[in-house]
Amino acid sequence: MKGRSRWLPVLVTVLLLAGAAVGYTWYAREKTARHGDVNVVPVVSGQALSVPSPGQVLFRNTAAGPDHGRVAQVPVATPGSPRHTADLSCDRFAASGGKALCLAARPGVLPPITDVTVLDRDLHVLRTFDLPGSPSRARLSPSGRMAAWTLFVTGDSYAATGFSTRAGILDTETGELVKTVEEIPVQLNGEQYFAADVNYWGITFSSNDDRFYLTMASRGKTYLVEADFRAYRARVLRENVECPSLSPDGTRVAFKKRVAADAAAPWRLAVLELATGKETLLAETRSVDDQAAWLDGKTVLYALPGRAGSSDIWSVPADGTGAAALFVTGGASPAAGMT
C-alpha cells in the first residue's frame, strides 16, 4: 500500500490528462455541430498567416463554429479584435523562429495516431510524419530549428492507469529524429538514475538549440531536468516541477507546481530563477493544467477551461504581482512574436 500511495499523484495526473486529450476531439465536433456554420466569436476565415512577428500572437482557435481547431492570429495590443484563421487545423500548436509545429490526432483511429507536421514561416508543410499516441504538448526552440512534442500512449506495463507519455525531438535542419527521449542518461543527486517507470514530458528549449528542459516523472515524483541534445545526457535540477517553459532571456522557468493532493485542482503556476533557485508563485490561483508560454519577458500565457467546455487564454505577470487577466476567449496553444 505504501508503494501504491507514492504512485497515486502521478498516475491520477496522467489519467486525467489522457482522458482530456482523448475526449476533447469528440466534444469539439459535437459543439461545432450544434452551432452549425456560425462562429461564436468574430472570425476572418481562410487567411494567409505567418509565424508571429512582433506584436502578433498565433494560437489554436477553440471557439465553437466552422473554424474550431484552426490556427488563428490576433494582435497583442487588441487580442479581442476579430481573429484571422488559416486553413490549418491542429490539436496542439507551436511557432518560433520562422517555423511552426502542428500536432493533429487522426479522428476515429484506435489506438490513437498523431500526425506531426513542421511548417515554414508561411505555414507551408516542410515535413510530416506520424507517431502513436494523442497530442499533449508542442514546442519549438527560439531559432525554430528544434521541434519537440509530448504524446499520450497506451500499453506500457508499468502504467497502472494504462497511460504514459512519449516526448520526442526533431532537428529540422539535419533531419535527426528522436521519437522518444526515454533512453537519455540522467543523473539524480550526482548518480546515474535507472527506473522502468521513467516518463518525460513538456520539453522547452534554450536559445542555443542544444540545451533543453523537461519534466521527468518516476516513482511518484516529478522533477525538472536539464538536458543536452548533442551530448545526449541529462541531470535533475529540482523536484516538483511540471511542464517547464523557459523565459526569452533563458534565466527563468515558468512551470506547474503541485500544491494540493486534490486531483481536481492540484497545481499552481510558478516561476523559478535558475541561477538562484528562487521560486515565486504567480497571482493565478486557479489550477492550471498547461505548459505556459511567455508573451514577453514579463508575462506568461496559459489556457484554462472556458465556457461550455472550450478553453480561454489567460495572462499573468511573471513576478508574482498583479492579477490574472483574460487574454483571448476561445483559444489555446499561444505562440507570441516577441517585441
Rank of each mutant, 00 (worst) to 15 (best):
A335F: 03
K278P: 00
A196I: 09
V74I: 11
A231S: 11
A77F: 08
G220T: 01
H84S: 12
A303Y: 01
S310H: 03
R137T: 09
A18H: 11
H124E: 02
C90H: 01
S164G: 15
K179R: 15
D296A: 06
A64V: 03
T174K: 07
T78S: 12
C102Q: 08
A283L: 05
A261G: 11
R83Q: 15
A28T: 15
L17T: 10
A318K: 10
G175N: 07
A234D: 10
W26Q: 09
L11G: 15
F212C: 03
S143E: 09
S245M: 07
T339R: 11
T128M: 07
W149I: 09
V236W: 03
E191L: 13
D210Y: 04
L304N: 03
A323Q: 13
L8P: 00
S164N: 13
N199C: 03
T165C: 05
P305R: 12
V12H: 08
A148K: 06
K31S: 15
A77E: 13
T161I: 05
F229H: 09
T285S: 13
S207D: 15
A263L: 06
R230H: 12
T251C: 04
A324V: 11
S218P: 07
A64F: 08
A18P: 00
D197H: 10
A138Y: 01
A72I: 08
W149R: 05
D67A: 14
I313W: 04
G80H: 07
T117R: 08
P111W: 04
H68F: 05
Y223V: 10
A292P: 14
Q73C: 13
D115L: 08
S136L: 14
V198Q: 10
G23I: 08
D130F: 01
G220I: 02
Y302P: 07
S310D: 14
K278T: 14
P107W: 12
G23Q: 10
G168L: 00
Y24N: 13
A336Y: 03
E176Q: 14
Q192I: 03
H35Q: 11
V41I: 15
A283F: 01
A234L: 02
P305I: 02
Q291T: 09
L58Q: 09
V10T: 13
D115A: 11
M1D: 13
Y213L: 11
V271D: 02
D228Y: 05
R258Y: 08
S207F: 04
D209M: 08
W201Y: 14
P244M: 06
A227Y: 00
R4T: 11
A28W: 05
W7I: 10
A234M: 05
A86M: 05
Y232R: 11
L237V: 07
A105I: 05
G309C: 03
E183Y: 05
T174R: 12
T204R: 04
V241F: 05
G133N: 05
L214P: 01
G155V: 03
V116S: 01
Q47D: 10
R34M: 04
E183L: 12
S89R: 15
A234W: 00
V186H: 00
R106K: 14
